[in-house]
């Protein structure tokens, strides 16, 4: 890309800037071109003052500023509609993966936790407020299945019923979407900035709905505990806790994307 350089610091800088400007369109190309011209002029000026090539490059780069510091002044409006749509598509892909994983995963976890939960209900008789839950009249004497299986069968999965067989598939679908994204971004253009969703936007898009849903679901679940341990209690608690975890992770993602450590680069 350049010609008059010493140990390649300017080329390295321009390469990094090129990567950071991906998706900024004509404004980015123009800034890159002007940066190259400017740095070569500055290096030549330094050499004319008697500096060696390495020192001249270092001085030129120090005066020019960090890549992050310069690139962040390229306005968002300069980003093309195509880039916006690409990022929206990527963000939707990831959000869909998280949503499927949450919904399907909550159902699967409720199903798995159903055994200890039901055993606890029967063993304590506490939640039902009635003694002898496995005896008459709660379970008929000629029951074809044991007490545990019978009660466990009445457990609802996520949010009042639903097709039990679908939950594992939904969870697997979510995992496949997220794993596919991680894999494709390593080997395709999905790994470039042009396709990368804005961390803050994606984080907020997940934190907001899950953060709002979590307390509602948890409050239903907790209320159910004190009201004869309704059959939907476990599913509400599970989905609420899972939503809380997702909201916290998304908020941490927003915070880390805004921290200077993440946006810093070499000077």
């Amino acid at each position: 890309m350049t010609t008059a350089t010493g140990h390649g610091s300017v080329e390295q800088y321009l390469d990094e800037m090129f990567d950071r400007l991906a998706g900024t369109g004509a404004a980015g190309r123009r800034l890159l071109s002007e940066t190259e011209s400017h740095l070569l002029d500055a290096v030549e000026e330094g050499r004319a003052r008697g500096l060696d090539a390495e020192a001249a490059e270092r001085e030129a780069l120090d005066r020019f500023g960090t890549v992050t510091g310069v690139v962040r002044h390229v306005p968002a409006a300069a980003r093309s509609i195509r880039t916006t749509l690409r990022r929206l598509l990527s963000g939707t892909w990831l959000a869909a993966g998280v949503l499927l994983l949450w919904w399907g995963g909550s159902g699967v976890m409720t199903w798995l936790l159903g055994w200890p939960w039901t055993w606890l209900l029967i063993a304590t008789d506490r939640f039902g407020t009635q003694a002898g839950m496995c005896g008459r009249p709660w379970v008929p004497s000629n029951a074809t299945s044991d007490c545990l299986t019978r009660y466990r069968g009445t457990l609802n999965l996520v949010l009042e019923g639903g097709d039990r067989d679908a939950y594992p598939w939904l969870a697997v679908g979510g995992v496949l979407l997220l794993a596919g994204w991680l894999l494709l971004r390593r080997v395709t253009v999905l790994g470039t900035r042009a396709w990368a969703p804005e961390p803050a936007m994606l984080g907020l898009a997940l934190a907001l709905p899950f953060g709002l849903a979590a307390p509602v679901l948890l409050s239903y679940g907790v209320a159910g505990l004190f009201w004869q341990a309704q059959h939907w209690t476990l599913s509400y608690l599970t989905a609420g806790l899972f939503a809380t975890a997702i909201a916290i992770a998304a908020l941490r993602h927003v915070r880390s994307s805004a921290s200077p450590e993440r946006s810093g680069d070499r000077g």
């Binding site: 123009r30 005066r63 020019f64 500023g65 310069v70 002044h73 306005p75």
Partner: peptide, 11 residues
Amino acid sequence: PEGTVYPALHK
């Protein structure tokens, strides 16, 4: 930082 002058000129 000299690099910030170019985006300012573009603005």
